[in-house]
Computed example of a mutant assay.
Amino acid sequence: MKTSRITYAIISMLAGIFLLVSAGCSVGLPDTGASVSTDGQKLKVYFLDVGQGASQLLVTPSGKTMLIDAGNNDKEQVMLDYMKKYRISKLDVVIGTHPDADHIGGLDKVVDQIPVETIYMPKVQSNTKTFESLLTSIKKKGLKVKTAKAGISWDLDEQVHVDMLAPTRSYDDSNNMSAVVKVTYGHNSFLLTGDAEKESEKDMIASGADLRADVLLVGHHGSNSSTTLNFLKKVNPKYAVIQVGEGNTYGHPKSAILSRLQKQGVEIYRNDKQGTIEVASDGTTIHISTER
Rank of each mutant, 00 (worst) to 15 (best):
G151S: 05
S133N: 15
I95Q: 01
V180E: 08
K141F: 05
E76F: 00
G96C: 09
A196R: 00
T136E: 11
H98R: 09
M177C: 12
L67G: 04
E197S: 09
V111L: 07
I104P: 05
M79H: 11
S89P: 09
K182S: 12
K123C: 06
A101R: 06
S133L: 13
D74G: 08
T168N: 12
A70L: 01
G106C: 04
Y86G: 13
K75N: 15
R169N: 04
M121I: 11
K144Y: 08
M66Q: 02
V183C: 07
D112I: 06
Y185D: 04
K140P: 04
F190H: 09
A148K: 02
A166P: 09
D108P: 06
Y82T: 09
I88M: 08
Q113T: 14
A70I: 03
E76C: 11
M79F: 11
V183S: 02
K182H: 14
L91G: 15
K85G: 15
V180W: 08
A101D: 14
K84A: 15
V124P: 07
T97Q: 10
Q113F: 03
S178I: 12
L165T: 06
T184W: 05
K90M: 12
K144I: 08
P115T: 12
L80K: 08
T118D: 15
N72H: 13
A150K: 01
K144L: 04
K123M: 07
N175R: 06
K109A: 09
K109C: 06
